[in-house]
Amino acid sequence: MKKIVIGTRASKLALWQAEHIQACLEKRYPSLEVVLEKITTQGDKILDTPLALVGGKGLFVKELETALLEGTIDLAVHSMKDVPTVFPEGLTLSVITERDDPRDAFVSRTGKTMAEIGPKARIGTSSLRRQAQLLAHYPEWEIVSIRGNVQTRLNKMEELQLDGIILAAAGLRRLELAHLITEYIEPATMIPAIGQGALGIEIRENDSAVAEMIAFLADETTSRCVRAERTLLRTLEGGCQVPIGGYATSDAAGNIALEGIVASLDGQEVIRHSARGNDPEALGNAVAQTLLDNGAREILDVVYNQ
C-alpha cells in the first residue's frame, strides 16, 4: 500500500490520537502516505442531551464505521471507552494500543481537593458511572450534566461556577493539560470506564493488508486487560451509557486482576466484585455474572427502564 486514510473525529483530543497513530505509521513505513479524514459524528453534534438518552457511546463511532464500510477510510481511531462491544457486520477491532493513565481526574475551579470543597459542592460530569460513584462517597453533592470536548467542559466549569469537573486523566495528559489536574482519582474510589486510557483501531474485517500493516501498534498486555473489561460490559449488556465500571491489570506472569462495579444512579447501591484469572473472556464473564447475582441485575433493570 502506498497510501492509507485514517478516519477521526475532529476534536482536539481525537486529532491528537489520530495524529499519534499517523506518526507511528510514518515512522514505521517512511514511503507510506498517511492522510487524516475528519468526520463529525452525532455525538459531536448533540451536546445538550445526556448520552444515555440519545443512544449512548455508539454515537461517537457510527459515522466512522459507515465511512469504513463505504471504503472512504481504511481505519478508524477510537478512544476505547467510546467503542461499543458489538461491531457492524464486516468490521472488526484490529488493534488495542498500550494504555495511558486509566484513572479519572478531578479538576477544581478553586484549587481545592475533593475532600476540601465541602458537602454542598456542584460537580460537572455527563457520565452516569462517575455520577454514581461520586454520590456514593459524597451523597450531598449536586451533579451537573455537562457534555462537549475537554475545552468546552473546562469553559462550562467557569461559566456555571462549578466547584469542579471530572475528566479522563489520559485525555488531559495527551492535550498537555495535566497541570490542571487537582488530583487523580484512584480506582479504589472511582473505577474507570471500560477501556479508558487505551486507543482502538477499527478496520474492515477482510482487509488483511491494513491488519498486517498496523499489527505492530498492538500491546498484548493492554489488549488482554481491555478484553476482560469489555467482556464484563458485554455480559452486563451495557450497550448504552450506564453506571458500569471495570478495570483490569496484569502481572508479569500474565495473570489478570479484574474489578467491576455497578451502582445505582444516586450512589446508594454499589455492587463491586473482583477476581483473578488467565483467560480474559472467562474472567470478564465470571465477574459480570457475580455482579448480576449480587444485585446488579435489579439496578440495571431500573436504569434501562427509566
Rank of each mutant, 00 (worst) to 15 (best):
Arg9Glu: 07
Asp219Leu: 11
Ala52Phe: 13
Glu212Met: 10
Thr8Gln: 02
Thr49Ala: 12
Gln306Ile: 07
Ala169Ser: 14
Val107Thr: 06
Ala288Val: 06
Ala248Tyr: 02
Arg230Met: 13
Ile166Pro: 04
Ile185Cys: 05
Ala188Trp: 03
Pro102Glu: 12
Glu176Gln: 14
Leu59Pro: 03
Arg147Val: 03
Lys38Ala: 12
Leu47Thr: 15
Met1Gly: 10
Leu25Glu: 10
Asp48Asn: 15
Ile191Phe: 03
Asp279Asn: 06
Gly245Ala: 09
Tyr29Ala: 13
Gln268His: 09
Ser250Gly: 02
Leu292Gln: 14
Leu32Pro: 09
Thr113Arg: 13
Ile96Gln: 08
Ser264Trp: 03
Met213Asp: 07
Ala170Ile: 03
Gly164Lys: 13
Val150Arg: 03
Val226Asp: 03
Val83Phe: 00
Ser79Phe: 01
Leu233Tyr: 01
Ser264Arg: 03
Leu47His: 11
Gly55Cys: 06
Thr40Gly: 04
Asn305Leu: 02
Gly111Asp: 02
Thr189Lys: 15
Leu47Arg: 15
Ser145Arg: 11
Ile166Asp: 07
Ile201Pro: 12
Ala10Gln: 13
Ser94Glu: 15
Gly295His: 09
Ile201Val: 14
Asn278His: 02
Arg28Asn: 14
Tyr304Thr: 09
Cys240Phe: 14
Ala193Phe: 00
Thr92Ile: 15
Thr290Ala: 13
Thr66Val: 14
Arg227Asn: 09
Val86Gly: 00
His78Asp: 00
Ser94Met: 10
Thr8Cys: 05
Leu154Phe: 08
Ile261Tyr: 01
Leu217Trp: 04
Met1Asp: 06
Gly260Gln: 11
Ala275Arg: 06
Ala252Lys: 00
Lys112Cys: 01
Ile271Pro: 02
Asp266Tyr: 12
Glu159Gly: 05
Gln241His: 11
Glu186Asn: 10
Asp251Lys: 00
Ala198Asn: 02
Thr152Met: 14
Val5Asp: 02
Leu236Val: 06
Val83Tyr: 01
Gly148Ile: 07
Ser127Trp: 02
Glu269Asp: 10
Val287Arg: 12
Asp301Phe: 00
